[in-house]
């Protein structure tokens, strides 16, 4: 198997317009997924297109009221960037290990579209959009519309994920919790990212995303709406129970080699409850 190392974004898009490739930025997920046996190269399903080095695909900037992160930006750069909201930085700082964050990219984590992808719950609650480029087209989708299933998304074979962008929220409360198999270099049993803002006792923003508890990350705007515009004094036990129960309908985890469905669901809902309780006045 060979592949292509394009010099520029245009060359990469040109190549993609001609035949199917598997784009590789950091390679940290793909090298493991297609691993075969000791000392053999992995067996990719199509020719690899190496894009990690393309300068146009790397960088973090603030554009108007948005933060724009190019797809092949290293996780370690995002982790250290003061432009990036802390909820995403926290999530990234708990991903894998330093040596992997120095190779892995945010675009890789998004396109991988794993239910346990750790950047996804923060990106869901940030209402992030992804920009896809092909030779002749540019598309922009919300991340929750982009990801359609475990390992599945809307990227067409001729497209590259170009960038991810989002507005910086002005929130007063924030929670990120990864419950992993251990404290470093761990895969998530589940994760929760939540933002909220309450001003003068009124909850004017409430968003929560869950990872590794369903085929795709879970964010339910209809339930969020119920919490929004409430006064914190209305966060009664009954109300909180009702919200927790409603999320319970959406959280449908599995048993696997890392945890159990029961644990994932119970703990996800406990963390939700803990976050709602944080909003209550002391």
């Amino acid at each position: 198997m060979e592949g292509l190392i394009p010099e520029s974004l245009d060359e990469a898009l040109e190549a993609l317009s001609e035949r199917k490739f598997i784009p590789i930025a950091g390679g940290t997920d793909l090298m493991v997924r297609y691993k075969r046996w000791k000392n053999l190269p992995p067996s990719f399903p199509s020719l690899p297109l190496f894009i990690g080095h393309i300068a146009e695909l790397s960088g973090i900037e603030k554009k108007d009221d948005e933060i724009v992160i190019k797809a092949a930006t290293l996780l370690s750069e995002i982790e250290q960037s003061p432009l990036v909201p802390s909820i995403l930085r926290k999530a990234i700082s708990q991903m894998a290990a330093p040596g992997i964050r120095n190779m892995g990219t945010i675009g890789g984590n998004i396109v991988n579209s794993s239910p346990a992808g750790d950047t996804l719950p923060p990106l869901y609650v940030l209402d992030a959009k992804v920009v896809l480029l092909s030779k002749n087209e540019r598309r922009c989708l919300f991340i929750y519309d982009f990801i359609t299933g475990p390992g599945k998304n809307q990227r067409r074979d001729d497209e590259l994920l170009y960038e991810v962008r989002f507005k910086v929220p002005k929130h007063t409360h924030e929670m990120y919790r990864k419950v992993g198999t251990r404290k470093a270099n761990a895969l998530s049993k589940l994760s929760v990212a939540a933002l909220a803002s309450s001003r003068d006792g009124k909850i004017d923003d409430f968003r929560i995303g869950f990872g590794a508890v369903a085929p795709t990350p879970v964010r339910v705007k209809s339930i969020e709406e119920k919490v929004k515009s409430r006064h914190v004094s209305e966060l009664s036990d009954d109300f909180i129970n009702e919200i927790v129960n409603e999320y319970g309908e959406w959280i449908k985890p599995i048993d696997d080699q890392r945890s159990t469905a029961l644990y994932r669901k119970t703990v996800a809902l406990r963390l939700l409850r803990a976050f709602l309780l944080q909003l209550k006045p002391v």
Binding site: G27, V32, K38, P48, A97, N102
Partner: peptide
């Protein structure tokens, strides 16, 4: 060979990486 153990760690442009996860094309 899975990026877990770090025994294959090298520096690329001064940064530590796990060389078992790096395709040489990169």
């Amino acid at each position: 060979g899975e990026g877990e153990c770090g025994a294959c760690a090298v520096l690329i442009d001064g940064k530590i990486v796990h060389s078992c996860l790096v395709p040489v094309g990169n």
